[in-house]
């Protein structure tokens, strides 16, 4: 019965390179957005405007463009995914459960689920928007302290920190717990009962 290292029935190597590439695309999309933002910002700064005022004005435009892209079918998918990491995770997870969406037209259950999913998206959008407010504040604070961010990765890491902070606050709120429950429950209503996974 020698059995040194096996893990019976385990998937061999579940790491999906496609997933890495997908995240990389999101990072590249982040870089492109930041490049456009930086270009605009530096153009205005050359006109001699106050840094804080320029940042605020450009940030508002930037926020509207980026958070607004979440859930917008016409926006590039990487752009939307970047701001709604959580929804992307949810979609990936539910995709593994098998078909829940009706093949022959929408049912009431499916419509109800889509409605809750939109509410969930709104909550995520608010969190992403709050994260950008926080990012703007942090950039202002750094500028006031004479510190600058000189690399895209540093800016990305700061953006992640801000998102984790505002997302974490949202996650712990009563609204999220209740909505998370409704999201699960409405999804479950879309499946036939008594299904047993193989």
């Amino acid at each position: 019965m020698t059995d040194p290292t096996d893990t019976p029935s385990a998937p061999p190597n579940p790491f999906d390179t496609e997933f890495l590439i997908k995240q990389a695309r999101s990072y590249l999309a982040f870089g492109e957005q930041m490049s456009a933002f930086s270009s605009q910002l530096h153009g205005n700064l050359q006109d001699g405007e106050d840094w804080g005022a320029v940042l605020r004005r450009n940030f508002d435009q930037f926020k509207a463009a980026t958070v607004g892209s979440a859930g917008d079918a016409s926006a590039a998918p990487e752009q939307g995914q970047l701001w709604t990491q959580m929804l992307e995770l949810w979609r990936q997870s539910t995709a593994t459960l098998g078909p829940g969406a009706p093949a022959g037209g929408e049912t009431d259950a499916w419509r109800a689920y889509r409605q809750v999913q939109n509410q969930y998206l709104d909550l995520l959008r608010r969190s992403a928007s709050a994260a950008l407010d926080l990012l703007e504040q942090q950039l202002q604070d750094r500028a006031n302290a004479g510190k600058s961010i000189d690399s895209l990765r540093d800016l990305y890491n700061l953006w992640v920190d801000c998102n984790e902070k505002t997302y974490g606050q949202m996650l712990r709120g009563a609204d999220y717990g209740e909505l998370n429950g409704r999201l699960f429950n409405s999804l479950l209503q879309c499946y036939p009962k008594g299904e047993t996974r193989p």
Binding site: Q23, Q85, R197
Partner: peptide, 25 residues
């Protein structure tokens, strides 16, 4: 609904605690 509860749903719950770090950064 599911009989056995899918591991993917539990994984989602764990990742959902810190999605920007665990699924992005």
């Amino acid at each position: 609904t599911f009989g056995n509860v899918p591991g993917a749903m539990l994984n989602f719950a764990f990742l959902s605690l810190s999605p920007f770090r665990l699924a992005g950064q």
